[in-house]
Amino acid sequence: MIIETRNLTKIYGEKIGCEKICLSVDEGRIFGFLGPNGAGKSTFVKMLVGLIKPTSGTATLLGTPIGDVFTRRRVGFLPENFRYQDWLTGRELLQYHAALAHVPKEMRSQRIGEVLRLVKLEGAARSKIKTYSKGMQQRIGIAAALISDPDLLFLDEPTSALDPIGRLDVREIIAGLKERKKTVFLNSHLLSEVEMTCDEVAIIKDGRIIESGTIDDLLKGKVEVEIKATGLNGSLDKQISQIGRLISDDGTELLVELEGEDKIPILVSLIIRNGGKLYNLSRKKRTLEELFLGVIKGGGS
């Protein structure tokens, strides 16, 4: 496992930062960590990268306990509230981070060129960071996190200051890292971004994980279908209740929730057997946003 935590807990006085977090992230996975503001996402990441000391519990990164300085050579981190030495140029900042990350001197120039190209800031490398827009500062932050070509990358809200094109670029960077078997731990509020990018997610609320799994598994489960049909008789309602429930019915258009996608052919045969003429059946895809809002508002499982 690249990341493994067992009952990782941080308590600030009487306030819970994170409580008994148990997570495992395998090599080459893109892991999304979701939760409302103040849920404990950043606290959790800060514990893993060594900024905050856990109150209790254990965790390992790349097989070694958190806090190991040597292991941090293989870890990159983009903080949420990033701010860099704005009196440096972009290239100077990357030289500084390369030196801190122990990138060999003879490789620094080449590596800086690579990450500048990756975040599309080659043209601004000689400008001072104080002249950068917020989006450019976020890009240079991503470049600084990637400077040591880390095996594990923590990105805390990496697209918050970026425009849609910038977000697409970050998605491409993450996809490129995945191709190279790198592991990415992504904290984000942008659910659509997470849904498009991540293999697995965990949802945290009030310091506790309330849902986790692969995106496919989490979005499985109950299925909603919209039906357009005529000639349906009254007994259909009772038969549908055996495979799901009728949410709405205005005579020709029905919205049905089924217990699983294997019930769709059964529903079609029920309509036909009841003398109905089926004109359209479309499956409503459940989104991560619906799942997220459901577990956050509903208190989770």
Binding site: K46, V49, G50, L51, V69, F70, T71, R72, R73, V75, G76, F77, L78, P79, N81, F82, R83, Y84, Q85, H97, L100, A101, H102, G141, A144, A145, F154
Partner: peptide, 14 residues
């Protein structure tokens, strides 16, 4: 306070 140390402290430095 301004977050400048966060990225530095995640680097391999004591």
């Amino acid at each position: 306070e301004n977050g400048m140390l966060h990225a530095i402290m995640a680097k391999p430095i004591r």
